[in-house]
Amino acid sequence: MVFQIILLIMLAYVVGFIYFGLYRNITARIQGRYRPTVYQSFYDSIKLFSKKQSVSYGWMFYLGPIIMATGAVLTLILVPVFSDSDFLRSVTSQGNLFVLLYLMVLGPLGNALAVGTGGNPFGVMGVVRGLTRLIGLELPFYIAVVGLIIAANSSDIVHIIDMQKIGGLNIINHPLLFIGAMISMVGFFGESPFDIPGAPQEVYSGPRTEFSGKFLALLMSQGSLFAFAKLVLIVDLFLGGADSLEMLVLKTFAIFVSIIFIGIVYGRYKVEQAVDFLMKLPTLIAVLGLARVVWFG
């Protein structure tokens, strides 16, 4: 099982970084630039890990990225990656959607602790903006998840996947829930119009301002792991999971590309605009979807 976990983390690391390489590629082509290589994010990561110096502000500063990475790895392990195989089934059956929703908030909290130790005002500003945005982001996503739990009559992700095999995919059965969850997913990926915490023109790198070298590398790595975990979660909940590696890559990539396209097209909201928007339109859509589930099944 340990071997499987290590294998999964390596897979997520590779796939996550290649996705971010593709993300930079696609962005460059849309902006009319040439493009970096697909492996550019690997190069960045290895270079950052091999920096000679990384400034630190005490043990809490070390702990922050580690807490974030813990949240990402746990999320990754608890999400069932392959629907039919026994791959990590004994672990994934331990967790359910509620645990996952808690774990998804662990990262930002750990980050907040570390940034507070660093004492950089831009970092603190970024964290405050990030936590404010989180209020708006969680609302439609949680409503959508509650809708799915009611529809499947279970909070077990494996069960939700199995239900989709019988009754059709959730993206077709519950499109309103899917739209609500996807809009907040754009924010969870830190894409425009919700890229408020790390807005480079406003708060420099936001929470990452004070992180350098190894710390930044760890943050980047956990970011790609977490991105992969979130993509798999969406695929499991709405696209019926994946039974092979090809299907997994295909489905996650489809979700990822649609998120990229949304991110490239739009500009950035202000903090209050973003929370305002997220509390209105996506929440309304998700609530309508929930009502449909409750009254019409």
Binding site: Q31, R35, P36, T37, Q40, S205, T209, E210, F211, L216
Partner: peptide, 22 residues
């Protein structure tokens, strides 16, 4: 750094803070 000469193709990217910069 932008479309015309695109330094990113050589791995040269702008960052916002000196902590992250090489």
């Amino acid at each position: 750094f932008t479309s015309r000469y695109d330094a990113e193709r050589m791995g040269v990217v702008g960052v916002a803070t000196p902590r992250q910069a090489d």
